[in-house]
C-alpha cells in the first residue's frame, strides 16, 4: 500500500503529484520494458487502456487505484515458455523483482509501488497496477472519476 501523509489543501497538491508521478512511471514502463519485451518476443500490440478508480466507497474513497492494461497477440514464433523466460529476464534487467508464479503462464513482478503481470494464455494480457494510493477524499473522487483512456502505443 502506498501511504501518503496529510490531507490538507497542501496535501491535495502533494497527493495529485504523487499519483501523477506513479501514473507516469507506469506509462514509462509501457514505453520502456514493455516495448522491449514485445519486440523481443514479437508480440503485436492489439489494444490497451488506462483507468483509475477509488479504493473504497463513495462515503470513504480512501485513495485511488491505477490500472494500465495492454493486450498483445501471442508471440509469433516463440514458444510460450521461451516467451515467459524472455519476459522474466527483461523485467529483471529493468530492476523488477520476480514474484512466485501464482499459476501456469503468469509472470508476475514488482518494482517499488508497481506490479506488472503477464498472462500468456493465447493472447498476452498485461496489467500494470499500483495498490491503493492513499489521498484525500476530494482528490480520490476527482482522479477516480477520470474517464478511461486508450493506451498510446508507439510502434517502432
Amino acid at each position: 500500500m502506498v501511504v501518503l501523509a496529510g490531507c490538507s489543501a497542501g496535501g491535495d497538491t502533494e497527493d495529485r503529484s504523487r499519483f501523477e508521478a506513479l501514473e507516469q512511471e507506469a506509462l514509462d514502463v509501457v514505453d520502456g520494458v514493455l516495448h522491449d519485451i514485445a519486440g523481443e518476443t514479437d508480440m503485436a500490440f492489439e489494444a490497451g487502456t488506462r483507468a483509475t478508480s477509488i479504493c473504497g466507497e463513495s462515503y470513504a474513497p480512501r485513495g485511488v487505484k491505477l490500472r494500465v492494461f495492454a493486450r498483445f497477440a501471442a508471440p509469433a514464433e516463440m514458444a510460450t515458455d521461451d516467451a515467459m523466460a524472455a519476459t522474466g529476464e527483461a523485467l529483471t534487467g529493468d530492476g523488477w523483482e520476480l514474484d512466485p508464479q501464482p499459476r501456469e503462464r503468469i509472470v508476475l513482478a514488482t518494482r517499488e509501488d508497481l506490479e506488472i503481470r503477464f498472462d500468456f494464455a493465447g493472447v498476452v494480457q498485461v496489467h500494470i497496477t499500483a495498490g491503493c494510493i492513499e489521498t484525500s477524499d476530494g482528490v480520490a473522487r476527482e482522479i477516480g472519476d477520470r474517464p478511461t483512456k486508450d493506451l498510446d502505443w508507439a510502434d517502432g
Binding site: 478508480s53 466507497e57 463513495s58 501464482p102 477516480g144
Partner: peptide, 29 residues
Amino acid sequence: VPGLTSETSSTDGNLDKTHDLHRAALDED
C-alpha cells in the same frame, strides 16, 4: 453484493474490487 449508498454511479470502484477478486480466484488455479 455491495451495501449502503451503492447506486449505478458508484459501480466503478466496486467493479474494480470484483475484478481483483476475479484475478485472485483465478490464481487459486
